[in-house]
């Protein structure tokens, strides 16, 4: 089919280069070419949020981007957050609060939470809910996710849990 395009990028801190079809979705590139299957594809039209990654420190839907757009970029996926032995604090909080069930949407939530903790005040649960509203979870009803994020916000702000 089409010619392939050369791209170089950093994924979870490691440099990579690849030749990709221009039409290849970033999500498919990460999953199929890089083997980073933690980024999940739930809708392919930017609604469900399961494929959320960060590109140059900012969250993005990897199903709405092409792999060629990652060229020169610094990509983070859920695999770069923490490991099973040494989980990131956000992952720990999700476990403590039982904020996941089937786990399919979870990587997208974790990437979103990482960003909003850095960028938003999240003064109350309503603000947390609004900030998370681009991610769909079908199992938890969100209650435990909001509690996990509340705990993380309190830690960030030095507020003790009520």
């Amino acid at each position: 089919m089409s010619d392939r395009t050369h791209i170089t990028l950093t994924v979870n801190g490691e440099p990579f280069e690849a030749y990709v079809e221009p039409r290849l979705l970033a999500a498919d590139f990460l999953r199929d070419e890089m083997g980073l299957t933690g980024t999940h594809v739930g809708c392919e039209h930017g609604v469900c949020g399961a494929c959320t990654i960060t590109l140059d420190g900012v969250s993005a839907r990897s199903c709405l981007m092409l792999a060629v757009q990652l060229d020169g970029g610094d990509v983070r996926t859920v695999e770069g957050l923490g490991t099973t032995r040494e989980m990131h604090r956000i992952q720990q909080a999700f476990r403590e609060h039982h904020a996941l069930q089937c786990g399919f949407c979870t990587p997208g939530f974790l990437m979103t939470v990482g960003e909003i903790l850095d960028t938003l005040p999240l003064r109350d649960d309503g603000e947390i809910r609004d900030a998370l509203s681009g991610n769909i979870c079908r199992c938890t009803g969100y209650d435990h996710i909001v509690k996990a994020v509340r705990a993380l916000v309190n830690e960030r702000d030095g507020v003790s849990d009520p």
Partner: peptide
């Protein structure tokens, strides 16, 4: 406008 990740891009 939509949500965080969409507003970013």
């Amino acid at each position: 406008v939509a949500h965080v990740a969409i507003r970013n891009r």
